[in-house]
Computed example of a mutant assay.
Amino acid sequence: MGGIGIWQLVIVAVIVVLLFGTKKLRNLGGDLGSAVKGFKSAIGEEKEQKNNAEKTSDTLADNSTTASENMSKTTESKTKDTDQA
């Protein structure tokens, strides 16, 4: 008592097939499969975009650090040139 047995599942499956027909169930299964596939690809694209954004921000941060280092070196060399003159 209490659980659903294999025979109850078979009876439910037969009733569903009789109500909807195999062609509709096959189309429904295909639609469900393509919906799941689309969902997975959307999740994958979102993760890829997030990774690309992180890489871009890291690259920009590295470039800005390099640019600021170059600016400070240029400023130091100009200061040395004016001090020597």
Rank of each mutant, 00 (worst) to 15 (best):
K80V: 06
I6D: 08
T22K: 09
K80C: 00
S77V: 02
A85R: 06
L18Q: 07
F39D: 06
N70L: 12
V36P: 01
L25F: 03
N52E: 10
S57H: 10
G21T: 02
T82N: 09
E54C: 03
E54F: 09
D81E: 11
S68N: 11
M71W: 09
I6C: 06
V16E: 09
A61Q: 15
T65I: 13
D31V: 00
G21F: 01
E46Y: 10
G2P: 06
T22P: 03
G2N: 06
T74V: 03
A35Y: 05
V16I: 13
W7I: 06
E45S: 14
D81Y: 05
G29F: 06
F39T: 08
V14P: 00
A67W: 07
A61G: 14
K80T: 09
D31C: 01
L19Y: 03
A42E: 02
D83C: 01
T82V: 02
K80M: 04
T22N: 08
L18P: 00
Q49K: 14
K37E: 12
D58H: 10
L60D: 11
D31N: 07
K24T: 03
G21I: 00
G21S: 03
T79F: 09
G21W: 01
T75H: 04
V12K: 13
V16H: 05
T56C: 01
Q8I: 08
T66E: 15
M1L: 12
T22E: 01
I43V: 13
S34G: 06
T59H: 15
K23Y: 11
S41D: 07
A42Q: 11
R26M: 05
D58Q: 13
E48D: 05
W7P: 00
E54K: 07
T66C: 11
S68A: 14
S72K: 13
E48F: 02
A53C: 06
L28V: 02
N51H: 08
A35E: 02
E76T: 09
I6E: 04
V12D: 11
S64F: 15
K37A: 15
E54L: 14
A67M: 14
G33T: 03
L25G: 10
I43Q: 12
Q49F: 04
G38N: 09
Q84H: 07
E69R: 13
F39W: 10
G5W: 00
K37L: 08
I11M: 11
G33M: 03
D31H: 02
K50H: 06
K80L: 07
I43A: 13
V10T: 04
T79R: 13
K78N: 09
V36H: 02
K24N: 08
G30K: 10
G2Q: 05
K23Q: 08
I43T: 05
D58M: 12
S64R: 15
K80W: 02
V36Y: 07
V14F: 13
L60R: 15
A61S: 14
L60E: 15
V16S: 12
I4H: 00
V14E: 15
E69H: 05
E54P: 03
R26V: 01
F20E: 06
G30S: 12
D62P: 04
T79C: 04
Q84S: 07
K40P: 02
I43G: 05
Q49L: 06
S57D: 12
N27H: 08
V16K: 03
T74M: 12
Q84K: 06
R26I: 07
T66P: 00
V12A: 15
T82R: 05
A61T: 12
T56N: 11
A13T: 14
S72R: 12
I11C: 12
D83S: 09
